[in-house]
């Protein structure tokens, strides 16, 4: 995810579909100029928004990203929404409209305090994360002990897990699911990372 990703594309030329340095490959519609204009026909726009949603989800999943921030001039926004090869760029309003559609499908959530400038992209649902995390806990024999959120999200034991570095918001949603399932109980901590969780015995 370095800035050199874009330049290495250019060096590759047009002969092949370029993969980013990260290994991510955009589908070819990413090079379709009208893809960057909000389509005035409702049915076309719906399909366009779906396609953009798919591209965003794939990109975020591949790079294990969680937060979309419209005000951050970061690599993500530059790679996703700005195509230098065809000189086309999504307007912020169009990105918002796309995220709105993703929210409707449960694929994203606006940060309520951000006035539609920040969103969490849910490329896995909290229910899926809940299953992953509880499976990992039981397989590692960590049930019946109290762990902190930090240990789950950043602990040495979790380093090879897909949920490593999971976003706090997503982690909290996941914990809510686990509590609701009756699999675990949570404990207040001094701050988010010190929040605790205990998984019950499987048979209990």
């Amino acid at each position: 995810m370095s800035l050199s990703a874009a330049s290495s594309n250019a060096a590759q030329g047009l002969s092949q579909s370029p993969a980013l340095a990260s290994g991510f490959q955009f589908p070819s519609i990413h090079n379709f100029p009208p893809f960057y204009t909000l389509q005035p026909t409702a049915s076309t726009w719906k399909n366009q928004a779906d396609l953009w949603g798919t591209v965003v989800m794939r990109y975020f999943r591949h790079h294990r990203l969680y937060q979309l921030d419209l005000d951050d001039a970061n690599t993500t926004n530059e790679q996703l929404f700005h195509n230098q090869r065809i000189n086309r760029r999504l307007k912020p309003e169009t990105i918002q409209a796309i995220v709105d559609e993703m929210v409707k499908k449960g694929d994203a959530e606006w940060d309520p305090t951000s006035r539609k400038r920040k969103a969490i992209i849910l490329w896995r649902k909290p229910e899926e994360w809940a299953t992953f995390i509880s499976t990992w806990v039981f397989e590692s024999g960590l049930n019946n002990t109290i762990m902190t959120y930090y240990e789950i999200a950043h602990g040495d034991n979790a380093e090879d897990q897909e949920f490593y570095n999971i976003h706090p918001t997503v982690l909290q949603k996941t914990m809510d699911v686990l509590v609701k399932r009756g699999v675990a109980t949570t404990f207040q901590g001094a701050n988010f990372e010190e929040m605790g969780v205990k998984f019950f015995n499987a048979g209990a």
């Binding site: 047009l14 092949q16 579909s17 589908p27 070819s28 090079n31």
Partner: peptide, 13 residues
């Protein structure tokens, strides 16, 4: 349009 495998739109553009 060819969804996955080629890069035709870049070519044309």
């Amino acid at each position: 349009f060819e969804p996955e495998e080629d890069d035709i739109y870049a070519r044309a553009a």
